[in-house]
Design a protein around this nucleic acid. Structure first.
Length: 283
DNA sequence: ACACTGCCCTGCGAGC
DNA sequence: TGCTCGCAGGGCAGTG
């Protein structure tokens, strides 16, 4: 499941291959519906002949601004992959889209589960997306005070709120569980009962966990691959996610980890050290 | 406005 | 051994 560290890993590796490259041809393969736009006409026509000017990231979205003011937006969802390969390399499995570049390399989008999308947005749609998404956890301007204010009107669980991309952008199921374990916060804690200092600790833990995962080039749990088809190295460092199957124990207290469902997602936590804050009242 | 559920999709592992 | 079934989850539509 590509989350912020995985998407940023893809962006960094892709950037030197796509920046200032002209898309000379566009080929749709297994699932043509992968490429979509609200712009009129054939979606491919908005890419053909355009030059990619940069590779950016916002939350879990990859943004490739084009020289005509539009932006190619890629979301990998669960199993999407963006690959850089030599021209005319053998097709990869579940390959849906090929962009032929002036460099004679190809940018390919593959996705086993067809959840991922490649969209062409105009400037207004990009502005709307940016406005809808919450702040970036790694942006120094994102503060505990700001997050406290955002969470103040939400009675839903802190886990649901951290997964909500309009609250904070870039966290997914793996890193939310890791952050909550690191800060000893129970995933079902109502978001509006967390004090500023607890949220400060939460933000701090999120930054450390995301930065460390990024240094390890992301977590490969099932299918994540970088643009060169390599897996990430961060899975070995996870403290809770995916660790119940092997009878995982909490590294802090030795208690067996518990698996439940919170916010409709598989959730792993330590029942001993992840507790609701004692204060228990909205602040 | 907010909270919550179900849907999309398919490889894989559990269970019989 | 071979089959079926249910799980995995990001984002969004629909409901209350």
């Amino acid at each position: 499941m590509p989350e912020l560290p995985e998407v940023e890993t893809v962006r960094r590796m892709l950037e030197p291959h796509v920046r200032e490259q002209t898309i000379t041809a566009v080929t749709l393969r297994e699932f043509a519906g992968v490429l979509e736009t609200t712009l009129p006409g054939e979606p491919r026509s908005w890419l053909r002949g355009r030059t990619i000017t940069a590779a950016q990231r916002r939350g879990k979205y990859l943004l490739f601004p084009l020289d005509d003011g539009h932006t190619m937006v890629v979301h990998l969802r669960m199993t999407g992959r963006l690959l850089v390969v030599a021209q005319d390399a053998a097709p990869v499995r579940f390959e849906h889209l090929r962009l032929h570049l002036g460099s004679h390399e190809e940018l390919r989008f593959a996705d086993q589960r067809k959840f991922g999308r490649v969209s062409i947005f105009n400037a207004e749609e990009i502005a709307r997306l940016d406005a809808r998404l919450g702040p970036e956890p790694l942006d120094p301007a994102t503060s505990a005070t700001m997050m406290h204010a955002r969470l103040a009107r939400h009675t839903a669980s802190i886990k649901a709120m951290l997964l909500d991309q309009t609250v904070i952008a870039g966290l997914g199921n793996i890193y939310v569980d890791e952050v909550l374990w690191a800060t000893c916060i129970h995933p079902l804690t109502p978001a509006n009962t967390l004090s500023v200092s607890l949220i400060d600790g939460l933000l701090d833990a999120a930054r450390k966990i995301l930065a460390s995962a990024l240094a390890n080039q992301g977590t490969t749990f099932s299918s994540f691959e970088n643009p060169y088809g390599e897996t990430g190295n961060n899975a070995a460092f996870l403290k809770v996610y995916g660790r119940t199957k092997s009878g995982g124990m909490c590294e802090r207290c030795g208690t067996p980890l518990v698996r439940t469902v919170v916010a409709g997602r598989g959730t792993t936590f330590c029942p001993q050290c992840q507790v609701m804050p004692a204060s228990g009242h909205p602040t």
